[in-house]
Simulated scan of single mutants.
Amino acid sequence: MTSTRSAEIRCQTFGPIQVHYDGRVLTPRPWTVLQSHWAAELAARSSPGPILELCAGAGQIGLAAAVLSGRDLVQVEADPVAAEYAWHNAAAAGHGAQVQVRSAPMQHALAAGERFPLVVADPPYLSTADIARWPEDPVTAIDGGADGLDLTRVCLRLADTHLTPAGVLLLQVAGEVQARAVVALLATPGGPALRHVETRQHDAERAVMLLARSTVSAR
C-alpha cells in the first residue's frame, strides 16, 4: 500500500453487517457476501469450533459468516491497517468478544495444534500482469504472483494442516479457469490432501470453491 491512498473512512452494508474501511484497504466486493452465506450454511452443520478466515482484509467475509452462524472467528491479515479495521468492524457488529484478529503473515499466525472445522479464504488471485486493470486497489491485496496462485498455494497448505478431519475450505478464485488450476494443484503428488467438492461461479472471473479433506487424517 502507498501513503497516497485516501484514509477517509467509508462505510458499506455487507450482508448483516456494516463494514468500515478506507482507500488503503481493498474495497469490499458486494458479490463476496455469497461466500459469507455459504460459509454460514456450512457452519450450521459443522463440528464445534471457530471459523478461520485467511487473508481477511477488513474482515467482512468471515465476520458476516460468524454473525450469521453465531460462531467464534479467528481472522488472519498481514496488513496492519486492514487488521485494525477488522477489529473495529467486529466490535461495531457486536461480535467483538467472539473474534480474534491476528495481524501477521498467515504462515506464522497459527499454532501447530490449532484445528478449525471451516476455513474461509479470499487470497489475492490476480496475476501480476493483470493488476494494472485495478489501479485503485492496493497492490498487496490483489497481486497473486506470476500465475495468480502464490497466496492460494499458501492457503491450501494451511488448510491441509489446520482443518479438522471433516473440515472444509471455502476458497475464492478468479473464475472457472483458475478453479481448474487449483484442482490441478491438488492432483500434484505431495500436494495438499484436499479434494474439490463444488464450485459456485458468480461470473467468468469470480467463483468460490468448496474443498474438503481427501482422506481422514489423524492430525
Rank of each mutant, 00 (worst) to 15 (best):
D143C: 00
M106E: 04
A121Q: 07
Q107N: 08
E84Y: 00
E84W: 02
S103V: 09
V99Y: 00
L151T: 07
V101H: 07
H95D: 00
P135L: 12
A83L: 05
A129S: 07
A141P: 00
D147S: 05
A82H: 10
L118R: 11
A86C: 03
D147H: 10
A91M: 01
R102Q: 02
P124E: 06
G94Y: 06
G144A: 11
S103N: 15
A91F: 01
P124V: 04
R115W: 10
D137Q: 13
A109G: 09
A104D: 04
G148C: 11
D143M: 01
H108D: 12
V120R: 02
W87G: 14
Q107K: 13
S103G: 07
C155V: 14
S127Y: 00
A121H: 05
I142R: 01
P124C: 06
P138C: 08
E84R: 14
I131Y: 08
D130T: 10
E114I: 09
A109W: 13
G96C: 05
L110W: 13
V99E: 01
T152I: 15
C155E: 12
S103K: 07
D122W: 06
R115S: 14
A82T: 08
T152A: 15
F116S: 11
M106P: 00
P117E: 06
A86T: 01
D122E: 13
V139N: 05
P105F: 09
F116N: 09
M106C: 10
I142C: 00
A97C: 02
G148P: 05
A83T: 04
A92H: 08
D143T: 01
F116M: 11
A86F: 01
G148H: 13
P123M: 10
P138K: 09
Q100Y: 00
T128I: 03
A121T: 09
L151I: 12
H108R: 12
P124R: 04
A141N: 04
E136T: 02
S127M: 14
P117F: 04
H108W: 05
A93T: 10
M106F: 09
H108P: 00
A93I: 03
A112M: 04
R153A: 08
G96W: 04
R153G: 02
D130R: 15
G144C: 06
T140I: 14
D147V: 06
P135R: 12
I142K: 01
G144S: 08
A111G: 15
S103I: 03
H95E: 00
V119N: 10
F116D: 08
P117H: 03
A121I: 07
V154E: 11
Q100M: 09
G94D: 06
L151W: 13
D147F: 10
R102T: 02
A90P: 04
Q107M: 12
R102M: 02
R115Q: 14
C155K: 11
R115C: 11
S103W: 04
I131W: 06
H95T: 01
P123Q: 13
A90N: 06
